[in-house]
């Protein structure tokens, strides 16, 4: 009975179903027949040595690349199912509510922190401003919508500790703040799936710990699924519910942290057959 319920739950909770994803660039196969499932209220990590194709998975998911083969099914809890590989890039964020961050931070550097977060709410504000018409004449409807947008931005700024720096130019922020701002910005689109590309890269241990807490709280409070690419094993092992290991574009392991940690194939991929090189881990 209990097992049955658990199974039903997992069925229900599936958020993203990646099936047979393959991506080739000319002769190079970056991802080779990858299948995995990410669930709601779970942090799914994709790990693997450099060049394993992790970021390419994200780029396929968020529409920057069109997969050569494969099916990316997003089961949006409110809106229904979407085949992401058939959608134009911006529609995946607009309709599918998939938010993402980038390995090399992509903020709007000349705009302020607050503006960065307001832009993330573009589509909602656009509707409220009747495509700029209501806004142009300063109708109350738009003013309220903008106030709501500022409140949402304030909420996330508070969560990442950037309230005092809300009016800074984003490009002037220290590195760690930029990383957190990018996460806050992605959260402002109200995602059902949040894809984070190496959010802990370049953070000091203290910031890294804060990040863990932030991600766990996002998972628990917002109830969304998080897809995480990370090299920092303390982050990955500490907070992941589920880990997918890639090597040379192929999935070599899939399971909970305990399972992956002890999987001999994973150890071999990271440490090599003979020579030890544990820089990655």
């Amino acid at each position: 009975m209990n097992a049955m319920e658990a199974m039903l739950n997992t069925e229900d909770d599936a958020l993203l179903d990646v099936q047979h994803l393959t991506m080739r660039f000319g002769g190079l196969t970056a991802i080779d027949d990858l299948s995995f499932t990410a669930r709601r209220r779970e942090i799914t990590s994709i790990i693997g040595p450099n060049g394993a194709g992790k970021t390419t998975v994200f780029n396929c998911l968020t529409g920057f690349y069109k997969p050569t083969v494969g099916c990316l099914l997003l089961k949006h809890p409110q809106k229904g199912d979407y085949f992401l590989e058939r959608m134009e890039g911006f529609r995946i964020a607009q309709v599918g509510d998939v938010g993402r961050t980038f390995q090399n931070i992509r903020l709007f550097p000349k705009m302020t922190v607050l503006e960065n977060l307001i832009i993330a709410q573009h589509n909602r504000l656009m509707k409220a401003s009747c495509f700029a018409l209501a806004g142009l004449f300063g109708l109350p409807r738009y003013r309220e919508a903008e106030k709501a947008a500022v409140d949402k931005a304030r909420f996330w700024l508070d969560r990442v500790g950037l309230i005092p720096r809300a009016d800074w130019e984003a490009g002037n922020l220290p590195y760690g703040d930029q990383r957190r701002l990018e996460i806050a910005r992605a959260m402002c689109i109200d995602p059902c799936l949040l894809c984070l590309d190496e959010p802990a890269a370049g953070l000091n241990p203290r910031e890294s710990l804060d990040l863990n807490e932030l991600l766990l709280s996002i998972r628990d409070e917002q109830g969304i699924g998080i897809l995480l690419i990370e090299h920092d094993m303390s982050v990955v092992m500490g907070i992941s519910d589920h880990i997918v290991v890639l090597d040379h574009g192929r999935k070599i392991s899939d399971g909970d942290p305990e399972f992956v940690r002890n999987d001999p194939t994973v150890i071999r991929a990271y440490l090599g057959e003979e020579e030890g090189d544990d820089d990655h881990a």
Binding site: F90, F108, P109, K110, I119, I189
Partner: peptide
Amino acid sequence: RAWEALREDEIACRSLGIN
């Protein structure tokens, strides 16, 4: 704001659902 955001980073704009 979207104009300016686009000037700053088009890829980031797309990732935020801006057409």
